[in-house]
Design a protein around this nucleic acid. Structure first.
Lengths: 178, 178
DNA sequence: ATCCCATGTGTACTAGCGTACACATGGATA
DNA sequence: TATCCATGTGTACGCTAGTACACATGGGAT
């Protein structure tokens, strides 16, 4: 019995869940599919995560942390001298560059909060955390609006297949900043 | 057997699908659950809609038409003298007033396009149709941004459970209009 | 050193799913 | 009127799901 007493078992299950959502979407997420992806027995996924909602909460929280890091990594966002709209539009370009799987996973789990109350606090954490970060450069109301507009623009791109337009994004974000 | 040769069978199945999504979410949508809700045999739902995607396409299209009517019904939107931002913010209040089930169904199907390519053209129809309508009062770029911002604001409300704030919405929409 | 219990493993049960298919029926067409 | 085929009905199959549970194991508290 290899891998008994695996101290990272729980973490590996979360990572596997994120990969499953990336490959098959939330509809393809099950205790069994995650167990197979993580190479652990079925009972192990049900032991660590009693319900799929629990697992999605953990996965969304982890995805949020990843995107929070990409925001934090863009240090210029904190620099009062930088062009906030341009920085945010460039952040969007970074998100959409290359493989979009990560972004799709983030949004799929985020949007799942619509029907899964358990996810709502985690979705709210993301929105508020991002807004708090932006509020350092502007007022809270504007910060909330920026988050909403960025969400809306990202969704239009993901849902309709339209290309991401950084210059357009910068322009309209700048209007909200006023 | 009663109800043989039911000329509205297909329509009744679509209506039932929308009710099922409203009650149980897309996750609860199946040929069987819809058949039960529409009070038709299983074979009837699979006959009219070969796949669930087909059924979701029909349901989203119908939901879109309903919301398009609420937009058109707000005649003041077309009136060049009216305050566009205020009218749109009021439209949001109308959407959120009372039972939100309809709005949740609309967004749940709309957002499902993220993972279901079959729904993307229908999602794009909604976004473009709404934007085209707004473009009558402003330019196409601003119209698109307004749709994105409205989507973002509605989602924040639905996902995080925050209340809908008409005055805040009017204020930030006005900034985008410039 | 002993024991407990958090953790890990394997399997079985029941329910619901999409799918397929054989057959029924009667409006539309010729 | 005779025929055809779009539409309607009922049932069965194989698959996957969540859940439950009995049992195994060994790290850490005592």
């Amino acid at each position: 019995m290899a891998r008994r007493y695996d101290p990272e078992r729980r973490q590996r299950i979360i990572d596997a869940a994120i990969r499953v959502v990336g490959e098959k979407g939330i509809a393809g997420l099950s205790h069994r599919s995650v167990a197979a992806e993580a190479d652990v027995p079925l009972g192990s996924t049900t032991y660590h995560f009693k319900t799929l909602d629990d697992l999605m909460v953990a996965a969304l929280r982890q995805a949020n942390e990843g995107y929070a890091r990409t925001v934090l990594a863009r240090g210029a966002l904190q620099d009062p001298e930088s062009d906030l709209a341009a920085e945010l539009a460039a952040l969007g370009s970074e998100w959409f560059a290359g493989d979009r799987t990560g972004l799709e996973v983030e949004y799929e789990l985020y949007l799942a909060a619509l029907r899964r109350p358990a996810l709502r606090p985690v979705a709210a954490e993301w929105a508020e955390g991002f807004a708090d970060c932006l509020a350092l450069r502007t007022d809270p109301v504007t910060a909330r609006a920026l988050v909403a507009l960025i969400d809306g623009i990202c969704l239009q791109v993901l849902l309709t297949g339209a290309p991401y337009d950084e210059e357009y994004t910068r322009e309209v974000l700048a209007r909200v900043i006023g």
